[in-house]
Measured scan of single mutants.
Amino acid sequence: KEWNEKELQKLHCAFASLPKHKPGFWSEVAAAVGSRSPEECQRKYMENP
């Protein structure tokens, strides 16, 4: 399903605030978004950083 504005906001906010070198980075991003898997978050971010 399409990403909504709130999900995208959470994605970018989590990406900006979490340490990128940490193992499980995308899992933490997904936990912050709440409604998406780590894979979905990574794919979406890579599509549209």
Rank of each mutant, 00 (worst) to 15 (best):
V33C: 05
E2Y: 14
S27V: 12
G24Y: 07
E40T: 00
E7R: 00
F15D: 07
E47C: 05
P19I: 02
G34H: 06
H21N: 12
C13Y: 13
N4F: 03
P49Y: 02
A32G: 09
A30K: 02
P38G: 10
K10F: 05
C41S: 01
V29W: 00
K20E: 13
A30D: 02
G34M: 03
M46W: 09
H21P: 09
K6M: 05
K22G: 11
E2C: 05
S35R: 11
R36K: 14
Y45C: 14
P38T: 08
E7P: 00
F25C: 04
F15M: 13
S35T: 13
P49H: 08
N48R: 11
S37Y: 03
E39I: 10
K6A: 15
S27T: 13
P19Q: 14
E7F: 00
W3K: 03
E2R: 06
Q9V: 09
F15E: 11
E47S: 10
W26V: 04
E47Q: 03
P23N: 14
E7I: 00
K6F: 07
R36I: 02
V29K: 02
R36F: 12
A32K: 13
S27K: 15
L11H: 00
A16Q: 08
G24H: 09
E40S: 06
Q9D: 13
N48A: 14
M46D: 10
A31Y: 09
V29D: 00
E40I: 00
Q42W: 09
H21Y: 11
A31M: 14
K20G: 11
S37H: 07
Y45A: 15
P38E: 13
A16D: 03
F15P: 02
R43L: 11
S35W: 04
P38N: 04
K44S: 04
W3D: 03
A31P: 01
E39F: 06
H12T: 09
S27N: 15
N4Y: 02
P23L: 10
L11E: 02
A16P: 02
C13D: 15
K1T: 11
W26K: 04
Q9R: 10
E39H: 10
E39K: 06
A16W: 08
A32D: 06
R43N: 15
S37R: 08
A32L: 13
K6D: 14
P19F: 02
R43Y: 12
K10C: 11
S35I: 05
V33H: 01
K22A: 09
K1P: 00
R43E: 14
Q9T: 10
R36S: 03
V29F: 00
E2K: 10
G24C: 10
A30L: 00
C13V: 14
C41Y: 00
K44T: 06
L18S: 12
E40C: 02
S35N: 12
E2P: 05
L18W: 04
S27F: 13
H12P: 01
E2S: 07
Q9K: 14
E7K: 00
C13S: 15
M46K: 12
S35K: 12
V33W: 00
K10P: 00
E40V: 00
E40H: 02
S17T: 07
L11C: 02
W26S: 04
L11M: 07
F15G: 08
A14G: 04
P19K: 13
E47N: 11
K22P: 08
E5N: 08
G34N: 03
Q42F: 04
M46C: 10
N4V: 03
P23I: 08
Q42H: 06
